[in-house]
Design a protein around this nucleic acid. Structure first.
Lengths: 326, 326
DNA sequence: GTGAAAGCGCTAACAT
DNA sequence: ATGTTAGCGCTTTCAC
């Protein structure tokens, strides 16, 4: 009932091999027959059975994408970038949400193995050893680096440096830093940058330790900050920053007059805050696009691994200002 | 190099047919051989080639999911629900993001047709005729109804009714309504409910027309509301409500003292607002789960179509209060 | 209960 | 430039 290459072949008066060649556009076919075949294929509404093609070529035209949480705006935009670029490359993408559980990420890898040609894996928290152990397919890591592995990351260190320079220029000398989950690769990068750049600027940093990357984590961070002499709070991400702002408002601390607040990621949330949140801009959509491009290179056996690092930059909005005279 | 059923057959000393039967668990196999085959399969790390299976059975074990925008928290949760239930059913899900463009939805359907067994389609804005024309595969519509079609929707009308009853009880008599995109199926449902229930309660409604379902749309809605005598604003969704709250704050109108605000959807955003947003709770995760279950029934030729309607209910938080004495 | 054999629809040698 | 043919790895009759 569905039309096959055989039907098209019959209609065009050629063999099925010619049909295959005309459609996949690789073997040698004369212009005339090619046109004829294509016309018949279109007329009959023929499209090749992907299962058959995949069985013989071993290529599925599908890419797996693993993210810890697709309801997180950070990853949602990455997915959109991946989808967009994949559409250009005529690749289908298979998204697996790991529900924030590293175990489910590993399950997902296993499931995907037989279904996709390669994997794009955003894994902030699976540890290096397990990550390595599960890289059976060509893989591009997202916001994560591993020796010898293809990856796309963002320069979080530079973003943090810009924050510190800016706060210093505004007159701040004492700041608080609320870190995220300790295992997070990008979290470690932020922290390293803090340690490298703060002393050089003569900034004193109060590390509040790691808080959950949630609104509640932000509430905690606010209270912790107010117990220090810091005049600015740098938060792990926008969600934590917003949670902190909420708690600060409740406690009668006004932002940015009494305390400056800086987020990270520049998600849509940062625009929802009042005042709008100063934050570190991280190119998420672009990261998704770049990952597909890199995976494509990796799949076509081009030299590698390539580790692409995207730029980040401070986005100054309403939550940073000079500290109060004291 | 990859192990095939032939390898397992040889190792277990049986034919490939028996391997197939043992693994797919349908034909008759003796307990003893079945155990032996399973053991060998495990030892060799065998898993059946899905492409080959799909080629012969015509079933892919894959479900397509089409959403207008996966960065929208509303759809993100739906996807999570779908994924979760699909995992239970051992189905893979293929998500297609249509970037808010109805044309891309139709493209997605076409692409998915050869790759999946059935489709779950959240299509608030494609018109009925085109929708019908593209239903070639077993399909469950999400938050959308169409005669003769399987669907999962939520009772938005009831949610709106509860809002009206609550506002009336608080003492409001004049309210403003900011509608969303005119083509939206659920938007029409909200509006119908408004027209049915407001008069019965003696509520006067100022319809502000349709605003974009964005923060900016919310800013507009706030200004429009303040030009009416309304003491409460009911917004199309949480994003619009938050945008409105932002503009109201800028104009020195305090919520809920000067104006009550109600959102819709109960997304995570509603908890980010200060004060937290009163909103209509819509079960998104459950909708995703239900859609998979229904699609499964549909695929197994069970009687239908089934149109499941999920409950919605008012979630009272901090943005609603009695109107100011005037 | 188990094996042999016939394909599913296609691509990739190999002929011509 | 085109046709013929041999499978890709599996499921599923049909024999036994």
């Amino acid at each position: 009932m569905t039309t096959t290459s055989r039907d098209v072949a019959r209609a065009a008066g050629v063999s099925i091999a010619t049909v295959s060649r005309a459609l996949s556009d690789n073997g040698a076919v004369s212009e005339a027959t090619k046109r004829r075949v294509l016309a018949e294929a279109a007329r009959l509404g023929y499209s090749p059975n992907p299962a058959a093609r995949r069985l013989i070529t071993g290529r599925s035209g599908t890419i797996g994408l693993i993210v810890p949480d697709l309801a997180n705006p950070f990853f949602a935009d990455i997915i959109k970038g991946v989808q967009r670029r994949a559409r250009e490359y005529r690749q289908t993408i298979l998204v697996a949400d790991a529900d924030e559980q590293p175990r489910l990420e590993l399950d997902a890898v296993r499931n995907l193995t037989r279904q996709v040609d390669g994997i794009i894996w955003a894994s902030p928290r699976v540890d290096d050893a397990e990550l390595s152990a599960h890289l059976n397919l060509p893989t591009v890591l997202l916001h994560r680096e591993l020796p010898g592995q293809w990856s796309v990351t963002a320069d979080f260190g530079e973003g943090v440096r810009q924050v510190l320079v800016n706060l210093h220029a505004l007159g701040h000398r004492t700041i608080a830093y609320a870190g995220g989950p300790g295992q997070s690769w990008s979290g470690r990068k932020r922290q390293e940058s803090l340690h490298t750049n703060a002393p050089a600027l003569g900034l004193e940093v109060f590390e509040l330790g790691s808080v959950p990357p949630t609104i509640d984590g932000g509430l905690m961070a606010a209270d912790l900050t107010l117990a220090t002499p810091a005049t600015a709070l740098v938060a792990y991400n926008d969600v934590v920053a917003l949670g902190a702002m909420r708690r600060l408002a409740d406690r009668g601390v006004s932002v940015p007059q009494d305390l400056s607040v800086v987020g990270c990621d520049n998600t849509m949330l940062s625009l929802l805050a009042t005042p709008a949140l100063t934050t570190i801009g991280v190119p998420r959509f672009e990261a998704g696009e770049a990952a597909v491009t890199l995976l494509d290179q990796c799949l076509s056996e081009q030299p590698g691994p390539v580790c692409q690092v995207l730029r980040t930059s401070l986005v100054i909005r309403g939550t940073t200002a000079p500290p109060k005279e004291s």
